[in-house]
Design a protein around this nucleic acid. Structure first.
Lengths: 191, 191
DNA sequence: GACCGTACGGAACTGTGTTCCGTTTTTCAA
DNA sequence: TTGAAAAACGGAACACAGTTCCGTACGGTC
């Protein structure tokens, strides 16, 4: 599903070209108008018809995943590196979560899309969870083993909670998602 | 805006009757399908045309507000009572927040609507904030004065954070909003 | 250079919120 | 009691977004 990219092997050159144009256009449109930007707008920006989008990316989630794939992978890698460092498990967890939060809050509407029950975004939800949950789980387990965090919170809950706290930034009201996540993490300390 | 109810004084009896029917139908539809239930569905349930909804409730938010007004007021009153009790400010804050969380998580989709940037729900957002923020602010200030919570979190941030954490309950995944809010509140402790 | 199949574009379909307008109902005064 | 003005009504029509369909054009190969 997220495997909408069988690009390089035997694909027609115009198809490849259009796919690239779409990824570029989508990336622009996402930063300009959020991940909820109308499909027609992305298509127009890329200079293709709407059907071409659906041909390459069966669901909107697939397009979002394709656009952010590299950054998600980087987040995973950083998490593994932090874990490998081995010391200061709680600090590592905090650092990684901060990284994740930065990623979310700088992508307008991504956090909203992530938590959405909308079936459209199911694939997006799954992609993020499948990739990031293991890393988060390892970091959390390490901190737990070291007795640095309470034991009754699972990685999945933590990730959902963090994701939720990142919703609604950039509105007129003053709300600092990073600080609230900091409070949540502080609440993880034992006792 | 939320003042779509000038019901009792000089209004035609059929208008009053329809308004009541709509409130009843909306309440049912909300619990059955969430606050995002299609307008036509509510209208059909109430046995009226869609225009009648818009006549009585200019925006969907006004309808939601009207349906939940009593419960919001109860929440405000309870908060005041807790505040008047005067002792144990942090415990009072926790108790009140728990009450608020219970309200949110039992109203399918309400938390989502609350945080929505969608202009449709602006009035809903404002109504909740106008009514609940003062109470939350007083409770928080009391706890702060007693040195029971850290001083760098504002009531508005807290309410938004709590509201956000209540998003996405009732999905297939195991996520306990109450517990995560508990963690957030634990993170408010000083130091 | 011609053919076949892939990929294309935009029109059409679907579902939802919102508005408009001709009709019905209520009210009130004669 | 009745009849006309005003209020309110219902449902069709409009706007707008996602999604699908289909005739057409293009790319690769023989």
């Amino acid at each position: 599903m997220a495997e909408a990219r069988k690009p390089v092997p035997g694909a027609r050159t115009d198809a490849r070209r259009n796919k690239e144009a779409l990824l570029k256009a989508a990336a622009s449109a996402f930063v300009a108008s959020g991940v909820d930007v109308p499909v027609r707008e992305i298509a127009a920006l890329a200079g293709v018809g709407v059907a071409t989008i659906y041909r390459h990316f069966p669901t909107r989630a697939d397009l979002v995943v394709a656009v952010y794939r590299l950054q998600v992978e980087a987040c995973v890698e950083t998490g593994k590196a932090l874990l490998a460092r081995g010391s200061q498990p709680y600090a590592a967890l905090v650092e990684w979560v901060d990284l994740f939060v930065d990623f979310l809050v700088t992508k307008h509407g991504l956090a909203e899309a992530l938590r959405s029950e909308d079936a459209t975004f199911q694939a997006l939800h799954s992609y993020f969870l499948d990739n990031l949950l293991p890393v988060c789980g390892d970091l959390l387990a390490a901190a737990r083993s070291a007795g640095e965090v309470r034991g009754d919170i699972e990685a999945l809950e933590l990730m959902i909670g963090v994701g939720n706290l990142c919703i609604g930034v950039n509105k007129d009201i003053p709300y600092d998602a990073r600080r609230m996540v900091g409070v949540l993490l502080a609440g993880l300390r034992p006792e």
